[in-house]
């Protein structure tokens, strides 16, 4: 009798897992279709990183060299620019949940016979995939800024980009889960996205900072993402070199991502 009950419970669990996977896959697929349909936006989103890399990279690079720093600033900022692209694309994908709510589509998903968890998971994977594609585009610039990539580093970078994007999209889903209107979007940009970006060490080295700033930098999950990418893109040494070992970087981002996706799932389960 007990065995039969266990069996039944097992079946139910199995079914829930399958339904979650099917739901998440469907939502992921929609994100990709929308991204592909909006190619012009992808190209537009490519302009900003290009400006940062070549204009800021070259301009500040000249200044750094005159200050006697070792290595090249443009190679240093390369990882930061990738991270910026991942950050903006991920947050934008996540916040599209608010659009879906406003235009009614979220209702169609909320009443479907799929667990709520699949919405958060599908969105997180969807946003992560789209952001990774966007980030991969930037790798095209590598030869122009003197970064040499190979058959091992490219897949590693793509994997790390995916982990970072997944974590940030999950953070975005947590924020968007309770947002009822798009008016809050500017607030998110000012209070979450910009601080994450500026404190991440994307634009400046983080090794010799005053304690107050150093503390904030270490709290920023994106710091570890940027550092991981910098470990992989290489080309910099001395003051511009990565600060942490790559296992610690990847571990920190993965942990943050796991916390965020868990919160996102929890929030969606509680929603009425």
């Amino acid at each position: 009798m007990q065995e039969l009950k266990d069996q039944e419970l097992n079946d139910k669990m199995m079914e829930a897992v399958i339904r979650t996977a099917v739901g998440a896959h469907t939502i992921w697929k929609r994100e990709l279709i929308r991204f592909w349909r909006d190619r012009s936006r992808a190209i537009g989103a490519f302009v900003q990183p290009t400006l940062y890399l070549f204009v800021l990279g070259t301009g500040l690079g000249a200044f750094f060299r005159s200050g006697g720093a070792e290595g090249d600033y443009i190679q240093f900022i390369f990882a930061g620019v990738i991270a910026m692209s991942l950050l903006f694309t991920s947050i934008f994908s996540a916040v599209s949940i608010v659009w879906d709510r406003e235009f009614g589509f979220l209702k169609e998903v909320l009443v479907a016979p799929i667990p709520r968890a699949s919405i958060a998971i599908g969105k997180a994977f969807g946003g992560a995939t789209v952001a990774t594609l966007q980030g991969t585009l930037i790798l095209i610039y590598a030869p122009f800024v003197g970064i040499s990539l190979n058959i091992i580093t490219v897949p590693a970078i793509i994997l790390v980009m995916f982990i970072i994007s997944f974590a940030i999209t999950s953070l975005g889903v947590v924020v968007a889960a309770r947002m009822r209107s798009l008016e809050g979007f500017q607030v998110i940009m000012n209070f979450i996205v910009m601080p994450l970006f500026f404190l991440s060490g994307a634009l400046f080295p983080i090794s010799n900072l005053p304690p107050w700033l150093s503390g904030l930098v270490r709290l920023d999950p994106l710091t570890y993402g940027v550092d991981a990418l910098r470990n992989l893109t290489g080309g910099v040494s001395g003051a511009l070199a990565p600060v942490y070992p790559i296992w610690l970087d990847v571990g920190a981002v993965t942990l943050f991502g796991a916390m965020m996706i868990t919160s996102a799932v929890w929030l969606f389960n509680r929603q009425e």
Binding site: V22, G23, H25, T26, K29, R30, I33, R34, R37, D38, D100, F103, G104, F105, K107, E108, V109, V111, A112, P113, I114
Partner: peptide, 30 residues
């Protein structure tokens, strides 16, 4: 949920998808 279909008062389609894609999305999650 598996036994019902719902047509809401307010539109709930994704207008950036085609008609077929909207239906495919629904068929999959159901």
């Amino acid at each position: 949920r598996r036994n019902i279909g719902i047509i809401f008062q307010d539109p709930s389609l994704d207008d950036k998808l085609t008609a077929r894609e909207n239906l495919d999305f629904h068929a999959r999650i159901y």
